[in-house]
Amino acid sequence: MNLRAVKAIYMFEMMRTWRTLAQSIVAPVISTILYFIVFGAAIGSRITEVEGVSYGTFIVPGLIMLSVLNQSVSNASFGIYFPRFIGTIYEVLTAPISFYEITLGYVGAAATKSIILGLIILATAGLFVPLEIAHPWWMALFLVLTAFSFSLFGFIIGIWADNWEKLQIVPMLLITPLAFLGGSFYSVSMLPPAWQTVTMFNPIVYLISGFRWSFFEISDVPVELSLTMVGLFMLLCLVAVWWIFKTGYRLRD
């Protein structure tokens, strides 16, 4: 494996994060604090507890997931789209690097940023509500898997998009609504039965449910099923990336 090349891409991408610290870290943290104020304080005053957990605490895993999902997709999609847009992608394409090394460099950097962000939000949440993590290793596993799988998804979007609008459209019209409707701020059991069934077609439900279980040992679906769904999603994305590099889709003429 060309580890130096992976490191070069990874470090180059991370350099951008430090250069744009306000945009990469501060903005999402402020957004999360606003969610806390609106949902935690305003709605939380009316819903005191969900399945034995105070509402403010209950929404923490969902809020972290919401940011991690969005940031993973936008970091990874921008990371690969920008060199395509300005033309510097030629250098990666002419270097002796395999597709999985390129993917590891870009997706690894995007996922790292999301994980750092997720942990910052977790720490910030700790300032607002009492927090205990029942299964910290499971929490870390879900966080890492989610960050990587959605960074892979973002990487695919960054290759597919041929203009800035398309780059924005998937996070705006797909990820955010699915995350909101995936139980970020409520338990699926709070929905009417018909909507509970519909919700089960939303893949993000499984992520949030598994992640929440690692905090409070309460979940909408069995944790094994959550893990399987994340794994399946990651596998699908990996197959798509493999196909992209094999055919040169949107990368090579």
Binding site: N2, L3, R4, A5, K7, A8, I9, M11, F12, M15, R16, R19, I86, G87, T88, Y90, E91, V92, A95, P96, I97
Partner: peptide, 21 residues
């Protein structure tokens, strides 16, 4: 087709790294 915000040194080092050197 060059990077925009990076320094000359960083971008040249990056190129060397890409080739596994």
């Amino acid at each position: 087709t060059t990077e925009t915000f990076e320094s000359v040194m960083d971008t040249v080092k990056y190129s060397r790294g890409l080739f596994g050197k």
